[in-house]
Design a protein around this nucleic acid. Structure first.
Lengths: 154, 154
DNA sequence: GGAGTTGTGGGGAATGGTGGGTAAAACTGT
DNA sequence: ACAGTTTTACCCACCATTCCCCACAACTCC
């Protein structure tokens, strides 16, 4: 592709990629997911129990904060508390020149990842799953998927 | 040659084409279906059982997501689950300079495709079928087709 | 009939994921 | 402040897959 230069298009992450973690805990970001928003990503352990790692391009990470700040339906305390926790749990990771992220050990532990992972595109962010947990999550969501698909005429 | 180079209308896919898959799993998109919305397509295995592969131009793919997001009749969990599965099962495929898509092996397996396919235009998307399954589906829908046609005075 | 388009096929170059070796940087304790 | 240890990042290399290019046959439209 031509040099993405600044920002480029609003990256849209789709698809599912099975990659491996080498013994240095490096994870190759799919090539198609790199240039779009740059080489930096915010990684946050999923808030809901022990699931996955959510990964945001910087612009989208900021957008989440702003969306919370602007949400009048939430109490000021809730917003303040969320933002502090959200920011504290996040890590800004930079890819090396081969497009790989070095994932902190605590994050891998949180997501139950060991050796290999599944990268799952999800709109403006993507998620990093342990293969086993992703399989389970897919099974859990299969019914909803089927149901909504039919309702939407797919 | 697509005379109206400018983006064209919201692509409307019609017709039925029998094409073959070469030994590299490349599928030629009908020439008339290329320029309309670009050279990139989102391909998703059909949610309902094992049927076909549904193919969307990027704009239409996004439109589906937005339609689900905006559908207040669905529960938040259902929407969230659907979107994650929908995005994950999708693959963004780009045609080569000859207008062919390289179809992933898992998708071919899902659709029971081997060697040759039928491309079926369907409104703002088109579908990729195994010839056998398409014949069966056509037979299944023959009665409904006849009935509705008569009801509509065709 | 001839010219251009379209579907099909295959060879060779380039890209992407993976692995490891080595140098620079950060943290540690004395 | 210094040396030793650990951590992080850059470099090169390998192999499979993918993409580009060229070529050919069938068909359509002048």
């Amino acid at each position: 592709m031509s040099a993405p230069a600044a920002s480029a298009a609003p990256a849209f992450f789709a698809g599912e990629f099975s990659h491996s973690l080498d013994d240095k805990n490096r994870l190759a970001v799919p090539a198609g997911w790199r240039g779009a928003e740059g080489t930096e990503f915010f990684v946050v352990p999923a808030p809901n129990q022990h699931e996955c790692l959510q990964t945001f391009p910087p612009a989208e990470f900021r957008a989440v904060s702003e969306r919370v700040t602007a949400n009048a339906a939430l109490s000021p305390q809730a917003r303040k508390g969320f933002l502090r926790q959200f920011n504290s749990k996040a890590r800004l990771l930079t890819t090396d020149k081969q497009g790989r992220l070095l994932l902190p050990a605590e994050m891998l532990a949180h997501a139950g990842i060991e050796g290999s992972v599944v990268l799952v595109g999800n709109d403006r962010r993507f998620e990093i799953w342990s293969p086993a947990r992703w399989a389970q999550k897919t099974a859990e969501e299969a019914a909803a998927y089927q149901h909504v698909a039919e309702a939407m005429g797919l």
